[in-house]
Structure formats: C-alpha cells, structure tokens
C-alpha cells in the first residue's frame, strides 16, 4: 500500500507500490494527451515562439474547460482574446508539471524537492479535476457521495472504480499539501 507523503529529514517523501505508480502514470498520461490533443502546428513561427494562438477556441470538453477556464464571467470576447494570448503557455506549463510527475514515478520511494512537490501538487490537482468531471461531481453533495466510496470491493463498474481512483488521488494530494505546509513552516 502507498504511504502518505510526509516532511522529514530528506525533505518531502512518499511511497507507492508498482501498481499504484502504473495507475498514476496512466492518469497523468491521459491528462497530458487531453491537453496536447488540439495543440496545432502554428503557421506563424513568431506567434508560436511568443505563445500566441489566434485560432484557439473555448474547449467543448467540460474537463478541458475546467483546466482552461474562461477568464471573464460574462465576456466571451474578452475571454477568447485572453485565450489567444495565454492558453498555449498555460497548457505547456500544465503538461510540463504532468510530465515531471510521470517521470518521477520510476521507483517506489519518491523524494521530492520543493519544486518537484509544487509540480506534483499541480499535476495531481489537474488529474482530480478531470476525474471529477468524468464522475459528474457538480456540488459538495456529489463530492461527499463519491467520497463515501472507500472500499475496493465496491469496485464493480467503471463509475465505482473511477470513484475509488479519485479518492486515492485525493488522499495522496492531501498528504502532499500537508507535507508542503510542514516544509514551509520549517523554513520560516
């Protein structure tokens, strides 16, 4: 079984079994391919270089829209303009964090630098956001319902399996954030 992340002499460390690492790697890869899916070859190399994407659209997939939300509530034009200027770099940053986390899954014991820990927390959070959309978690009651499923013998269909995976990533992230807070307090 996985061990929660903790802060100690080595910094932030955690422990994952091979099956858990495979599971996480699969989840991280899924979110990477979602974010990469409609990155197009940009005809204008200068625009690509400075991160512009004039052809960008609001994502139609809810999960992708949650990762890349509109920046203005009631202004689609303003939100689109913001996407043209920034979405490419937000995607690339997210993909960078997800890749870094996936690459760190090469051994059972994880020892994270503060920068690793930040990337891990961002990557796990994006994985959870995507799983939550797939599980249709819309409000706190939905979240509580999903959260109540903790027993792996309950995994009898795709939804219950996803719910258990979601709860595992939640547990892992909570322990990581607590370890990051402990590291922060130890420094100050």
């Amino acid at each position: 079984m996985a061990k929660a992340f903790k802060y100690g002499l080595k910094g932030i460390s955690g422990y994952l079994e091979p099956a858990e690492r495979d599971l996480l790697r699969g989840l991280l890869d899924d979110v990477i391919s979602m974010l990469e899916s409609d990155v197009r070859e940009n005809e204008d190399p200068l625009a690509a270089l400075i991160g512009l994407d004039m052809d960008v659209k609001q994502p139609s997939d809810r999960a992708l829209l949650r990762l890349l939300p509109n920046v203005m509530k009631d202004d689609d034009g303003g939100s689109l303009e913001f996407r043209q200027l920034t979405e490419r770099s937000v995607r690339e940053n997210k993909i960078g964090a997800l890749r870094a986390a996936a690459l760190g899954l090469d051994k059972n014991e994880l020892v994270l630098t503060p920068e690793d820990a930040t990337r891990w927390s961002m990557a796990l959070n994006d994985v959870r956001l995507v799983l939550a959309e797939r599980l249709d978690i819309r409000d706190e009651a939905d979240a509580e319902h999903i959260h109540s499923m903790q027993d792996w013998s309950q995994a009898e269909d795709v939804e219950s399996y996803l719910a258990l995976v979601y709860n595992f990533t939640t547990w892992l992230q909570e322990s990581l954030v607590q370890a990051m807070m402990a590291a922060r307090q130890a420094k100050s």
């Binding site: 959070n125 956001l129 706190e140 992230q173 954030v177 990051m180 807070m181």
Partner: peptide
C-alpha cells in the same frame, strides 16, 4: 468548486 482541496487552495 467541489474538487479543489481546502488545504491546497490555502497553500
């Protein structure tokens, strides 16, 4: 939103 952890947001 119902997903982000309270501890994470605070962090």
């Amino acid at each position: 939103d119902p997903v982000n952890l309270m501890s994470y947001v605070s962090y």
